[in-house]
């Protein structure tokens, strides 16, 4: 059931993208997300898509694996498309009863679908190529300036890394409990809504209990190791920028400039 969700999962392999500094990848992903909202023409989306395709090739993650992860947002995608398709005012193309499809609606729906897909693939590419540990290290390092404003940066990073770490554990746990209850005749595939909700009780109660138990164990283990927050803590693997990271920043900047240019310059061939 959860096998298909690749969002937030790490894909173990070796590639250029995997070896980049995680800070570059976070900044890059943010820049990519912003760029998707900067461009508003099909030509612009083409540039964004090409950039993403190159990145996927550089990441060594199989395309099939990434596309499978898209299934999780398929429903969201369809609903968004439907709303945009039918509810955008403009020049009417087709009309069924009170529903009408406009030219603007069609263009907007397609753009929205492309934007959402690229957004999800782009951000999942970051988590696919970066371990949760690296990710939180990078967030801590990027947010470091906020420490002067008394923002508990280390604590936020620690909470994030724990939360991220627990996603696969709880998924595995859910899978296990589900199987155990199926072995006792539970039916999780019932179409009946009330039965469906009822069938969740034997799943959720053990899951919550196990989550509390794990949280308790973890707190105990951290205290046993004299965890006292971030003050004076050093790192085994401190983040240091390499030459390739600087190169990556440069490429990102160039890409971002192209996107902004595509938006600002009134080029005639842009739709």
């Amino acid at each position: 059931m959860f096998k298909d969700i690749t969002i937030g999962q790490y894909y173990q392999t070796e590639s250029l993208l995997h070896s980049l500094d995680p800070r570059v990848k976070i900044v890059g992903t943010l820049a990519y997300i912003i760029s998707l909202f900067v461009v508003d023409s099909f030509a612009g989306y083409l540039v964004c898509a090409l950039f993403l395709i190159v990145m996927i090739r550089l990441s060594n993650v199989p395309v099939g694996y990434i596309v499978r992860g898209m299934r999780a947002i398929l429903i969201l995608l369809l609903i968004t498309m439907a709303f945009n398709l039918f509810l955008t005012p403009g020049e009417t193309l087709v009309k069924f009863g009170f529903l009408k499809i406009t030219k603007q609606g069609l263009a907007f729906a397609v753009k929205m679908a492309i934007r959402l897909s690229l957004l999800v693939i782009g951000s999942s590419l970051m988590t696919l190529t970066t371990t949760p540990n690296q990710l939180t290290d990078a967030i801590e390092s990027l947010l470091n300036p906020l420490k002067r404003l008394r923002v508990p940066v280390h604590e936020i990073a620690m909470m994030m890394s724990i939360a991220l770490r627990f996603i696969p554990i709880l998924m595995e746990e859910t899978d296990k409990i589900m199987k155990a209850q199926i072995a006792r005749g539970a039916d999780f595939e019932s179409k009946n809504l009330i039965k469906k909700i009822q069938s969740l009780v034997p799943l959720l109660v053990p899951l919550f209990i196990s989550a509390f138990r794990r949280a308790n164990d973890l707190a105990m283990a951290m205290e046993a190791r004299c965890y006292r927050g971030g003050a004076g803590r050093t790192k085994m693997k401190p983040l240091v920028y390499q030459g390739r990271d600087q190169g990556a920043y440069f490429i990102l900047l160039a890409y971002f400039c192209i996107c902004v240019a595509l938006r600002l310059l009134p080029l005639p061939f842009l739709v």
Partner: peptide, 15 residues
């Protein structure tokens, strides 16, 4: 599944 009963590891986690 009624005929082939399966008790998982740490079965008390399913109570």
């Amino acid at each position: 599944r009624a005929n082939v009963g399966l008790v998982f590891q740490y079965p008390e986690h399913q109570l």
